[in-house]
Design a protein around this nucleic acid. Sequence first.
DNA 1: CTGAAAGCGCTTACAG
DNA 2: CTGAAAGCGCTTACAG
Lengths: 314, 314
Amino acid sequence: MTVSRALRGGARVDPQLLQSIREAAQEMGYVPDPAARALASQKSNQILMLVPMLSNTLFVELIEAAHAVLFAAGYQAMIGVTHYDREQELQLLQSYLPLRPAGLLVTGFEQSPQAQTLLEQSRVPCVHMMELSDAAEVASVGFSQQQAGAAMTAHLLDRGYRRIAFCAGQLDARVMQRASGWRQTLQRAGLYASELEIMWPQPTSMAMGAQLLQATLAQDPTVDAIFFCNDDIAQGALLQALRLGLDVPGKLAIAGFNDLPGSDQMIPPLTTIRSPRARIGDESARLLLQLLDGKAPAVLRRDLGYELVVRASS
Amino acid sequence: MTVSRALRGGARVDPQLLQSIREAAQEMGYVPDPAARALASQKSNQILMLVPMLSNTLFVELIEAAHAVLFAAGYQAMIGVTHYDREQELQLLQSYLPLRPAGLLVTGFEQSPQAQTLLEQSRVPCVHMMELSDAAEVASVGFSQQQAGAAMTAHLLDRGYRRIAFCAGQLDARVMQRASGWRQTLQRAGLYASELEIMWPQPTSMAMGAQLLQATLAQDPTVDAIFFCNDDIAQGALLQALRLGLDVPGKLAIAGFNDLPGSDQMIPPLTTIRSPRARIGDESARLLLQLLDGKAPAVLRRDLGYELVVRASS
DNA sequence: CTGAAAGCGCTTACAG
DNA sequence: CTGAAAGCGCTTACAG
């Protein structure tokens, strides 16, 4: 029993005994059995991270940052990929929740009613990443996607562009929030028109960006700026513009979102919104650790902001 | 006891009893406790996947494919990222091995002696992905990186290029194998020169590709083709060539490796080697499942080949 | 600060 | 095909 206490941190153990126990454990190469621990204590030191996809570098950076913090604190991170699918999300929860993870880190939680129920019943502390929650009792670390969308739109207006389209794919909640920021800003300027919204449900890709550019210009040649919901489609559009010999930003401005790898390498370099995903991953993990320790801060909502990165494409 | 048997597959249980047990479990929402299972049986149904990094889409696709197979078979996949670092690899093993994973899927195993020992002692079945192992007792699914490197070089020779440089970053084992294929092919053609090897240890990126192109041409303006070890640097080089107004493939051919997203969108589209990573992930997982079932095939080595994708950049 | 007792929820191994 | 016994390696809760 004393050994058990010693190896878990050493509270209430004689300092001298503590040391000799640790030395002995070290010498024997003793490692506690996580399964036995989990069975006896009814919790593991695994933490489940749920993200929509890994093919977007954004989520990889988010996960890596969170992982580093959790790993250093002695937790193991488990990664679940929902593919933006409620059914898969539910299956993942059903599969991983029985492992009694100590905590949960989620992005873009689709929240089917069943998933919601499962989560609540499990009583596992949870932090939402990337977005900010409206509910005060929900822990969230991110930034206002809507404000960021509005900021980019305001920038394009500042630059003198007047017919600003919004092109999007993978219409998840965050994309819709960006769209809303764009829409409001244009409406306030009296420049909104519904045909400027080009929303395709398919997953984004550079090839899709090229197609979006074509479709937008074909539908309305007077468009003088396009705000893409993600950098990959913006990059694809930029390359397509180059192929078409279209003058960017003279004839058409192009802007993206997230500042993904390669955006600074484009011709011309891409104007975009830099999302602080690494910091979000880091802070989310720290917040979760606080929740696990029972010392939750009063404010569970952390706005880390965003950065407008103006490059030559606008 | 009968319930335990029933829920684990139902061998040696009366069919009628079996059914009613399953129905009852369903009704009660009973889910077996994985920790108790792991403690009693001394193994979990978690499978550890170790990859060098996630920022390369290659590994994401590999992992997703393997995950799908494992998840469908009732296993949970844990992802560990080594960052090409032996120390981190060892820490990951020390952290995850006590969970008694049922199996291991690894890529680019750096294998420090300590890690090697840990692995052997754990006696966890393991499949190596991407490369092919020379040792008959080691399970591996992949393709010959060296042959693929040779094939690309042969293609460039076929096209009439004579001064073919090899530019690389992130000098891991697979990159070195590709380099070796390139080197041998040039040597046989009597066209090898050591100054054609430009090997930088840093992680690859599009920006690095632009720099590699500059450095190569600065050092030797007669180079008429560059074979990049990965598509991201090739893409960066292609964009840099565009900025310089360099005629590709007329004045300089550019080739990559892996056929990553975006390579088909470049100007001009990039010639590359398509690595069958999704199939490798899939087959690796299936092979591992066979090992776990004790029905290992006689041949533990699966060569899935590669595909030379000739586009306009060469 | 230390430790004896009981139990976490399963599976293994054995008897019937 | 069924089930009683023992135990997996820890932690919780309690007594000293």
